[in-house]
């Protein structure tokens, strides 16, 4: 066992995969010589060469488009988009090429491709270095959307994503990159895609969250002694409805916490799933603690991001609902 932060865990996983398989190549802006703006790919170009760790021209749609073509012709590319906020020029490539290639070729041209991108606030990045755009991708058939909340899962989920023969949007919560260290086994292991993890157990309510919000939810639960199940979704598409169902049927009270704006965020989909399948088990309305429907501001970031206070107040509200 070694302790690693999330940056180290991802770097270690990419290293492992690259040493095992020549067809794995990385491409993105500043990922080679510079090791990436967050240093996630530090040292990999030195080890594997410029052919396998490419510093690309500054063009997101080109990075994504080229990665798709590489996957069509036998490689297993891992493109990086430096900040998720910059992904939108590549949106056409993601939605119209990447997500639909298997479907429109009836499985003849599958795309083994993992698109990594840091997302979310908490680093004073302002409106263009802080966005949480997961809903755009979760709304697209053909994509798988994954987000880890700790170093151990980062390795296990990235390994599983890179084993897949379908494109994965791997969203890395940048505020957690160096927030905590955890035990990460050196050996190979997998965390299953599409499976949530129960990270805290309780009987009175279910808090459903993922990515950057998991540590905040856990610290709130601990500080306030909340008798809560905390479910870390880990995969946002497909969503683990079975785990949600098991917990909600037990507790009857639901809070959903995410950083992304509320309207049509993950909370909306989760609420709908719960209403359709188990509304008769609920003792209280479902409550969402999310980022507001505004851009994420630079100076006032702390008002934007869901915090312990807002989560504790929401818990109070659903516990006392009658």
């Amino acid at each position: 066992m070694t302790t690693m932060n999330m940056v180290q865990a991802i770097n270690h996983t990419l290293d492992m995969k690259m040493s095992a398989d020549d067809s794995v190549v990385l491409l993105g802006e500043d990922i080679g010589v510079d090791g990436g703006v967050f240093r996630v790919t530090e040292g990999l170009q030195k080890k594997y060469g410029q052919e396998r760790v490419m510093d690309t021209p500054l063009v997101e749609l080109g990075i994504v488009g080229a990665a798709i073509g590489m996957a069509i012709n036998g490689l297993r590319p891992v493109p990086e988009i430096q900040f998720q906020d910059f992904i939108y020029t590549a949106f056409d490539q993601i939605i119209n090429q990447m997500a639909k290639m298997r479907y429109r070729t009836a499985g003849r041209l599958p795309l083994p491709l993992v698109l990594r991108t840091p997302y979310g606030g908490g680093v004073r990045g302002g409106i263009y270095h802080s966005q949480s755009g997961e809903s755009y991708f979760v709304h697209t058939a053909g994509l798988t959307v994954v987000t880890p909340s700790n170093p151990y899962d980062a390795k296990g989920l990235l390994s599983s994503s890179m084993d897949m023969n379908d494109p994965v949007i791997f969203m890395e919560p940048k505020r957690l990159y160096r927030a905590a260290k955890a035990e990460v086994p050196e050996e190979d292991y997998r965390e299953e895609i599409g499976k949530a993890k129960l990270v805290h157990e309780g009987d009175k309510m279910t808090i459903i969250t993922y990515g950057s919000m998991v540590p905040t939810v856990l610290s709130t639960v601990q500080k306030n002694n909340l008798d809560a199940d905390v479910l870390d979704l880990r995969t946002l598409l497909p969503i683990d409805v079975d785990s949600i169902e098991a917990s909600v049927k037990k507790t009857g009270r639901v809070m959903i916490v995410h950083e992304a704006p509320r309207t049509l965020g993950m909370g909306a989909e989760i609420s709908a799933l719960i209403s359709e399948r188990m509304i008769e088990y609920l003792y209280a309305p479902i409550i969402r603690v999310t980022g507001p429907d505004t851009p994420i501001p630079y100076r006032l970031e702390e008002y934007y991001l869901p915090n312990e206070k807002r989560i504790a107040e929401a818990a109070e509200k659903i516990l006392n609902f009658r």
Partner: peptide
């Protein structure tokens, strides 16, 4: 076009 570029890279 970008796809063709990626495929040519793989070539």
């Amino acid at each position: 076009l970008p796809l063709a570029v990626g495929a040519a890279y793989a070539v």
